[in-house]
Simulated assay, not measured.
Amino acid sequence: MTNSKHPILVFGATGRQGGSVVKALLKAGWPVRALVLDSTKAASLQLRNAGVELVQGSFEETHVIRSAMKDAYGVFSVLPANLTAENEVRHGISIADIAAQTNISHFVYSSGASVGSELTGVPRFDAKPRIEAHVRELAMTTTIIRPMIFMEMLVRPGLGLDEGRLMSLIRPEHSIQLTAVEDIGRFVAAALADKPRFGSRTLKLASDRLTGRELEVIISEAAGRPITYKRFPDDVLAANTDLAHMAKSLEDGPLAEQVDLKLMREINPDLLTFRSWLAGNGRKSLDEALRTSA
């Protein structure tokens, strides 16, 4: 453990990624500090009961963020999905700048796997690469992670599971790389514990790789009844810019780039497969999707 007496400041600690990071860091023995919007809410109180030091504040309160970073060894920065592209860039850059100014030893930024080598011209797609570019220019050790598509996205209500089908973005014979949120925390904990290995690296994260046909088999087994896999029709993709962008990226863009799953398991020996995730934390989401229509 590196500098374990100094805490890690975690953003988004009451959310999925931040919550996963908090859990993994606590398990690894790190002191954890979290910026929360409301320290009296149930999710915040759960963090406090787990031993997390809470700092109440918002992204706009840069003086609070600066204070929260005092004496911290590292920072995990992830931004909520409901921000506008402009605010995502503004807050992402601000958090990184404060980390550099307060001499944070290791800064970990959670970006997106759809980030490519070129900007798209669409603000919501270009927010993360703009933050990445800024982070790399700062005088501090940084690690950028790009989690692949979350497993939760395949078992949401409205994808047809209640009617015996799974609708997704890949063609049946093509593969999709999936990330279990629990694994993100383990990767971040591993990165913070080994600065020489992970500093100045950009790492795509995945837990499993499956074709549409393999998804059909695994979900059918978990559901206990036949589930047929189908790709979203072309007219549906054409009508939704976000879905069309992701579908194209899965075929010949950044989301199609192969993640080294052997390396993933070396870094995180507890790496979850989609099948094992469905048998564990994914079971509740699957059951809900199986009985809920759009």
Rank of each mutant, 00 (worst) to 15 (best):
A24F: 01
I176G: 12
G18L: 03
L215R: 02
S200G: 09
E221L: 12
Q101A: 15
H106T: 07
K23I: 00
T84S: 15
R165P: 00
D260T: 03
L255M: 13
A28T: 05
E61W: 06
L255E: 07
D194R: 11
S220C: 04
G212T: 01
L263F: 15
L278E: 09
S39T: 01
L47I: 10
E216I: 02
F59Q: 05
Q17E: 11
S20G: 15
S285Y: 12
A42C: 00
K262V: 14
R48W: 00
E221G: 00
L290N: 05
G185R: 08
N240M: 12
S276M: 04
G121Q: 08
L159Q: 11
V115N: 15
K262F: 08
N82R: 08
E257A: 13
M151S: 11
V78G: 05
A289C: 10
L237G: 07
V115D: 14
R197P: 03
A13Y: 02
V21I: 11
V32I: 02
Y109W: 13
V135E: 05
D162H: 13
L178H: 02
S293H: 13
T120W: 09
S111E: 06
L169Y: 07
D97K: 14
S293Q: 13
A28K: 12
R283L: 08
I144S: 12
A139E: 15
F274A: 10
R197D: 08
L178R: 04
K128Y: 11
K195F: 02
V22A: 06
A239M: 03
L237E: 02
Q56Y: 02
T273R: 06
A28C: 03
A238K: 12
G160E: 05
L166I: 04
A206R: 08
H63C: 01
A85N: 03
F11T: 12
P172V: 04
L79N: 06
L83M: 12
S44F: 00
V89D: 03
R48L: 10
L37I: 11
D242A: 12
V22G: 03
L237M: 04
D97N: 15
A100F: 09
L250W: 06
P31R: 13
L54E: 05
E163T: 09
F107W: 06
V36Y: 00
L9F: 07
D260Q: 01
D71N: 14
L35E: 05
